[in-house]
Amino acid sequence: MRRAEPWLALAGALALVAVAWAAPWLRFILTLALAKGIAVLGILLLLRAGQVSFGHAMYAAVGAYVVAFAAPSMGDVLVLLPMAMLTAGAIGLVIGLFITRYREIFFSMLNLALSMVLYSLLEKFYAITKGSDGIRVAPLSIAGMPMDGPMAGWVMFGTALTVAACFWWVARQYLISPMGEALAAIKTRETRLEFLGVSARGVLLVAYVLSAIMAGAAGAIIAMTSRHVTPLLAYWTSSGELVFIAILGGAGGVLGPFLGAVTYELIRVYAAAAFADIWQMALGLALLAVILFAPGGVWGVIAGLLRRARAT
């Protein structure tokens, strides 16, 4: 499976490019899907340690607002993206130092609580953030060249695909490294890890900061693509969406988040109009269905089919 993964990834990337080419109206959707996939990759790292964050959209919001605030003075994609990642990572480090003392419900709920705090700050400090109206992102450039029209769409799509590919590689290497394997050890026998002389908190902190950086990159891409940021980016429903995609994509593979995100966004485009009022409800029901009946998610279903195909 692991050996086939790079080829699957390549095939998937080519398929995305082909679809974006053939159906330009989907390019925007696919860019957002890739961005969300990056954030979900971070959720996946934490799930590997048996921890689920109900508040990770806050780091996406941090990345997005960094873009919105900095765009007027230095609106270059190549500057804004690293800046958003660094800021999200730094905030992730500070919060992580506190939050990695906790596991399970405390871990989940403290993340949720902190994201609600960020949401309400973004909403209440109108003078700085324009409250729930949000901020329009100033015109952007890439490597000094101004971006406009259809070209901007392609640039953002390409950026999202490149960043996604980089983080896919990072996560893939990280998860088979001693630190990545130690994450799964936190889930099964944290005590033993400590008796091996390894700081479980340190192991979790690294994953937490990495996940914050990933969400920050995702938020920056979303802001640069949609050119509008609002506090809703930090709202619990956005965090819930990330968790939902993580479970939908399945916790097994590193491609899962992207598979899940693309599936999710495409369904949303066509179904959200029909189910606008009960979208969260539909997500909740689907989440229950996946957890109770298909714990491997979409990725698990595909992996199962592949195994069966190879066996016959």
């Binding site: 109900f54 989940s108 968790v243 969260q280 409800m281 909740g284 029901l285 989440l287």
Partner: peptide, 20 residues
Amino acid sequence: EEPVIQLLVTFALFMILEDA
């Protein structure tokens, strides 16, 4: 089930009830 599953299930319930 594992705690993470329990959290996810009640979280899903929360999503459902909010829209209901």
